[in-house]
């Protein structure tokens, strides 16, 4: 596949996809809580941009709806809710020391390579241009998962969770022109409810454990005498 043979719009989609992947790495490496929320918001905005682009090229009006929805929800709504919570709990200056920054990012790189390897069978299909996008979206999903494993701050873990959803959305939009509208509306609704629930949980965890460190959530196990 030669990049120069692609249309301008397709090249644009690739560039945006690369930036989305970069945002995932930012999310993993940001030690400051507020900065991590910002990188998540940027990722949402980039996803919305991809959706706009695909909607324009393919002339599919229902994608415009989901693009607007993504922009409102992932780039503005959820980051705003999280910002509000962070301010309410007085965590603006909260920093989390990464245990092994170099190793964490190297594992992230390994995940990207793994994603490209995992989608190799799809490469041999006729729709060639999309395998890149599927690889990147799988990488964003896995990086979100890795973010939840590597970080201990509960809010950052939730950001990782939400960025997994971003990767899935990218896969749906860029490889198949978006899922049916009713499905996308349902998914968006679930994400919104999940974000609100997460907010409730932050307050509960904070109230009960006086910290938002996930390592403290360790009461339930078989061995312990309770």
């Amino acid at each position: 596949m030669n990049l120069l043979h692609l249309s301008l719009a397709e090249q644009g989609i690739f560039v945006l996809a690369a930036l989305i992947l970069l945002a995932s790495f930012f999310l993993i490496a940001q030690v400051r809580l507020v900065a991590a929320i910002h990188s998540f918001a940027w990722q949402g905005a980039l996803i919305a941009a991809v959706t706009f682009l695909v909607a324009g090229v393919q002339n599919t009006p229902h994608l415009l709806v989901s693009a607007v929805l993504t922009l409102l929800l992932k780039a503005i709504g959820i980051p705003w809710i999280l910002h509000f919570l962070v301010r309410k709990m007085g965590l603006e200056r909260e920093m989390e020391r990464l245990q092994r920054p170099a190793l964490t990012l190297l594992v992230g790189t390994g995940l990207v390579i793994f994603s490209y390897w995992a989608v190799l069978p799809i490469e041999r299909l006729e729709f060639g241009a999309t395998r890149n996008i599927i690889a990147i979206s799988l990488a964003v999903v896995l990086l979100g998962l890795w973010c939840m494993v590597a970080r201990h701050q509960v809010i950052v873990q939730v950001l990782g969770f939400m960025s997994m959803e971003n990767g899935l959305f990218l896969a749906a939009v860029a490889s198949t022109k978006g899922m049916p509208l009713v499905v996308e509306l349902g998914v968006a609704f679930d994400v919104l409810v999940a974000a609100i629930l997460f907010g409730i949980f932050f307050l509960q965890i904070r109230e009960n454990l006086t910290t938002l460190d996930a390592d403290r959530l360790n009461r339930l196990s078989e061995k312990e005498e309770r």
Binding site: M148, F161, M164, E165, N208
Partner: peptide, 24 residues
């Protein structure tokens, strides 16, 4: 209860996100 619900939320959320990828 909060801890159990949190684990449930996170684990099933991640699982179900992978299922969405399967759906795509």
């Amino acid at each position: 209860a909060i801890e159990a619900a949190w684990k449930y939320f996170i684990l099933c959320g991640v699982g179900i996100a992978l299922a969405l990828f399967g759906n795509v």
